[in-house]
Design a protein around this nucleic acid. Sequence first.
DNA 1: ATGGTAGCGTTGCTA
Length: 263
Amino acid sequence: MRLVTWNINSIRLRIDHLRRLVSFMSPDLICLQEIKVEDALFPLAECRELGYPHVAFHGMKGYNGVAILSRLPIAEIRTPSWCGRDDRRHLVAVLEDGVQVHSLYVPAGGDIPDPEANDKFAHKLEFVREVAAWFKGSVRPADKVIVAGDFNIAPLETDVWSHKQLLRVVSHTPAEVDLLNALQASVPFVDAVRHFVPPSERLFTWWSYRSPDWRKNDRGRRLDHVWVTPALAAGLRAALVAREVRSWVQPSDHVPVMVDVEL
DNA sequence: ATGGTAGCGTTGCTA
C-alpha cells in the first residue's frame, strides 16, 4: 500500500498538481491538509476521476480542512475535534480490514513561542496534548494505525536548516518538540520516514514562501510526517520526500511525503 | 531587528 501525505494549500487551486502527483506516484491513499474549501464546494468528481472512488473530506471556508482519497473502500469516517473547536484539522478513515488512516493538521502556532503571550501557541500545545492523551487511551501497539499529516513541528536537529537559529522559532522550540515526542511515545508510533533516512541526514518537507531562493538557501523544515504503529512497522518498505514538487509552477509551500507499507 | 510571499475572498486573517 502506497500512502502520500501532502499539505496542498488549497485543493481547488492545485487540483492539477494533485493530478500530476497521482500520475507519477500512483498512491493508494492520499492524506491532504489545508484543503481550504467548505464541504459543499469540495471537488469530489475530480477526485473520483483521478482514480479515488472513496473520498472523505472535512473542510471549512477559507482555512484548514483535511481529506483522505482512497482506492480501497472506507468502512467508517470519523472527524475528531480538539480544544473545543470545530476547525477541521483531523479526519480518520477506517478501512475494511480495520486499518485506521489519520489525516492530521496541527495548528501552526503563530510567531511568538510563549503560550502566555500568544494564544495560537497555547492552542498548538494544548492540541498536541489532547491528541496524545486520546491516542494513549484508544490506540494499542497491536492496532494497525497510520497517522499522517502536517504536524507543524520539526523534532530533530536535522529536521531544520539551523537547529541553533530555530530553537526559539515556533515549530522547533523544545516545548513543542517535547510534546510531539510525548505524542509519538503515547502508543508508541514509529516515524516511517526516519525509519529509512538516518537522523544524521538533513530532511525537509516545507520551504517558506517568503524565501524566494528556497532551492539555493535550502532553509527548510521537516513539518510533515507519517507515523505507524508497531503492528505496521515490520511492513515498512520505502519512504520518499517528493522535493521536486516545490519547484512546480505556483507550488504549495509543503511537498508530498510518500510511504510504502504492507498492511 | 525586520520583512519577506501566498490563499481566501474581499479586508484582514492565517500561515
